[in-house]
Design a protein around this nucleic acid. Structure first.
Lengths: 303, 303
DNA sequence: CGGACCGTTCAGAAAATACGATGGCGCCCT
DNA sequence: AGGGCGCCATCGTATTTTCTGAACGGTCCG
């Protein structure tokens, strides 16, 4: 049983004549006669009563007509959907997100994606910069955000924002950091991040011209943890400036007023997948959300 | 797009390999490779991602998979219904009924038909003997009941019952028919049926040996009308014995006690359609309901 | 670096399908 | 009543489609 036979069945039933059906199907009368015959033999059911005036559906044919119609309709739906998919981007995209969703404008990104590409389903996976980058390279993620520089040649990286950082101390240490210089800060107990964390590199830069090695009283991996330890009065640390200001506003941290190096917010995808329509489209939407153009797309050489 | 391509599509998607799908479909691997290729080209959509390990559905393929499945399912339903129809009688049957449904056991007939052949839909069409017979011959009816003999060679007739008749007079004429002979009855005013009505023939038989021509004060066509005219005191007439007795019970008629010829209740179908399964089945059920065998099937010669 | 898998492509073979002609059957019109 | 017409079934041939087996290119793994 094949669809062309069902099409013939329906057409013959509608027209009541093999001859007329043949004309409308742009084929010969014996051809469609054969279609009907083959169908009847395969189904074991006489579909038409042959009369000198044409073909009349038998009661059995009448019942099967509906089923044949449904089958053709289902096939037609498939074609229609296929046609729709031709001009429509479809698929799941897994994006690594390394810090809070609000700062990362995930809401806006999601809304914009849904408007432009309704059949694209983004997955936002909370992770850490140090894990996101290798996950992108391994293909576990289709793309991802992270802090800090990146010089893997197989990644296509977009700089989205320069994120200012600020040194924050527990409120109790207010007078100890007021007007302090970098050397005095280094003598305070520090909450550090692990070496894989991009904040670590910023801290290193901070103290590169200071001969005092800061006292590292704790190592943590997330900004949440840093905030929490500052709040508990454990030590001084680096936070995003907006985070730092909020800490001060909410009364559990005080900001150091001196200059602090910033960090880059970046977005990366695999360079060799950059031509995939889905990857290209999502990257473009992200650039729109962060209001940066293609010029922000830096591609370093070397592995 | 053909069903065999969709079957291949589903199988390849399920197995993830052209090779394995080919084995299960009892064909060669290049063959199903061609199926997929043709499908993809016709739909304008890449269904699978080719990898060294096999075939993986693309997101587009994933969406179309469901549609393909539905199409195949619809086709499968068609086959299933066709198989069911092979052993099941289907169709509409138009039966002419010439008198009241209760007497004709239409309820029992319907119940029995529905039990034995649930997909057969009987139509019971109220009509008159004189119309039913030609309607059967013309094909307007598939079969029908009627009173009286029938000698059309193209009909296959079954005698179902010998229906006794009784002469009934208005109650007021009680003493005029008590003990009357046929000659005296003939002198009363008669309610007659038209010549086409089989009751007419019975009346003729009744008076064939009497020299008095009965006074025909009214001609009607239905038993209902006959009853009504008797009730109104218009004249004497013939009724089915059960009808007559009810008239007497209900006090609007009185029965003549003398012998009265009966009439045959018959059922007919076109002789040349007697081999149609539907006709054969319905005829058989009717014989069961009336508890007669094939021996009651009389087939006269001549037109 | 060679073998194991897997999918694609190709040319020839096989099968299915289409075509044109023919015939039978009922119907209509003369 | 008979010739013509419209309809479908059948048949042999022709065409198209589909299938097959072999060869090829790629990736992965030991």
């Amino acid at each position: 049983m094949e669809l062309y036979q069902l099409k013939t069945f329906i057409k013959v039933a509608d027209e009541g004549h093999l001859t007329r059906a043949a004309e409308q199907l742009f084929t010969s009368q014996p051809a469609i006669s054969a279609h009907i015959k083959a169908l009847e033999e395969e189904l074991g059911v006489v579909l038409f009563q042959r009369t000198p005036k044409g073909m009349i559906l038998t009661p059995e044919g009448e019942l099967l007509y509906k089923q044949a119609e449904q089958t053709l309709e289902a096939a037609e739906n498939l074609k229609i959907q296929a046609r729709a998919l031709q001009d429509e981007l479809v698929g799941d995209v897994r994006l690594g997100v390394h810090t809070d969703f609000e700062f990362m404008r995930i809401g806006g990104l999601h809304r914009r994606l849904a408007e432009t590409y309704p059949r694209v389903r983004p997955h936002f996976i909370q992770s850490m910069s140090s894990i996101i980058v290798p996950d992108i390279r391994k293909g576990n993620l289709d793309g991802g955000f992270f802090f800090g520089p990146c010089n893997f040649g197989d990644l296509s990286v977009t700089r989205l924002l320069d994120v200012p950082m600020t040194i924050v101390a527990p409120v109790a240490w207010h007078e100890r950091i007021e007007g302090a210089d970098i050397r005095q800060l280094a003598e305070l107990p520090w909450v550090y991040t692990s070496e894989t964390c991009p904040f670590h590199a910023v801290s290193m830069t901070l103290f590169e011209n200071v001969d005092v090695e800061p006292a590292k009283v704790a190592f943590v991996d997330s900004e949440d943890a840093v905030r929490e330890l500052i709040r508990s009065g454990v030590g001084v640390s680096l936070l995003r400036r907006d985070d730092a200001q909020r800490a001060q506003r909410e009364g559990y941290g005080c900001c150091w007023s001196g200059d602090t190096p910033g960090i880059e917010l970046q977005f990366a995808v695999q360079k060799r997948r950059g031509s995939e329509p889905l990857i290209k489209a999502v990257s473009e939407v992200i650039r729109q959300v962060w209001d940066v153009g293609d010029e922000a797309l830096s591609e370093k050489a070397a592995e």
